[in-house]
Simulated assay, not measured.
Amino acid sequence: MDTFECREGLTLCRGRMKYPFDQAGRGWRARSARAGERAPSFRSISSGCDRVRHLRDDLVAGYQGRTVEDVFCGREVACPSGRCYVLESRSPITDDLDDRDPNRAAAAILADLTLVPGIGEATQQRLQRLGYRTVADLVRHPLYRRDAARLLDSVAGRDTRGLVEWIGRRHRRSDPLLLEASRFHAPETLVFLDIETLGLSARPIVLIGLARVEGGEIAVRQYLLRSLDEEEAALTAALPDLEAEGAALVTFNGRAFDLPFIRERLACYGIRADLAAPHFDALLFARRRWKGPVPACRLSTLETEVLGVEREDDLPGRMVPEFYNLYRRTGNPGPLVPVVEHNRQDLISLVRLFALLRGDGGR
């Protein structure tokens, strides 16, 4: 089949168009409007079973007889464990991430004497009065010099992974120093991760979403399972990004959910992976930064209250299993449209939130 490239880099097939995510959603709403019906908003899903049934029926009717490849603009990727389907898109970034600034990161970390074991706030004040202003000064202290030297070596070696663990042992995981440590990484080395699953544990991952900042844009790559048999291939295909040398991982609640879930699924297939990249969980920083002014630190709430974003159509994450299972039962790709778009928007908002957090140091 002949193909050509459109200006957004989306592949179009002659004689039929493969819809990117937002086009698929708009197409579905337009069909409802032409039929004289009000296109239901995904935001209304939680308001009642009738609306859920209406949404299901409309999606199935709108995409009857079509395939995943018909609807989504993607490509098939082959790896030793099988094949999977990859969707790629780009969006402008409206909140620029601060550039790499290792000197600022080093200065902030070394100014905190309480990072050295045995030093609390009172001891820090006493040591500062004695002339020990930074961790580097403590290298000549008879009691603290060994740990101070170890911390100094980690900072000098730009060992972000070690520093994240060190700071996490001495302070809360939401401490602004952890955001400062992220400044050892250029924006292009940050990998943003969000997954969609069929449940809370011991269930397959059905969508792995990754995003990176490239050339002033947010480049999103999504590994969508056309069948559950593709999970192993999707995990294998995503690993190079998750384990890229010099990369750091950014998630929203990833310490509690995304990373443990991925490790569990990798173990299920016997796939060996380190997943040892430095990890910055934006949820923890967001709670520290906006817990008072914002009623709840859910990503959707932060979108509205902090980013000023109102999703026109959104599928709540808790509905992903139901919609994916509907696709599995019917083979109709319609229910996947809001699943893919929900994940893509989550990644875009995560990038923007982390840009704001890093910009003001999370304070």
Rank of each mutant, 00 (worst) to 15 (best):
G65P: 08
R66C: 09
L210E: 10
D22M: 00
R352F: 11
A248F: 02
Q128L: 07
D70R: 02
T330W: 10
F184D: 04
D95G: 08
A273K: 04
G216N: 09
Y144G: 00
L225R: 02
R14C: 03
K18Q: 14
E305T: 12
T189D: 15
G162T: 00
A149I: 12
V213G: 01
L55I: 06
S89E: 11
G62M: 00
Q345F: 11
D175F: 00
D229A: 13
L110V: 02
D57W: 06
F42S: 00
L210Y: 03
L110N: 01
V77N: 05
R158S: 12
R16Q: 14
L307D: 09
E245L: 06
G168H: 07
D159V: 03
V250Q: 10
A219I: 01
L228C: 15
Q23E: 15
I208M: 10
G118H: 09
P204T: 04
I45L: 15
S46N: 15
V164C: 13
V139L: 15
H185T: 05
L179M: 11
V351N: 03
R170S: 13
P187R: 11
E188C: 06
R221Y: 02
A148T: 02
L113R: 08
W166T: 07
F21S: 14
L97F: 06
H141P: 13
G317T: 01
D137K: 04
R344Q: 11
N103H: 14
L315D: 05
V52G: 02
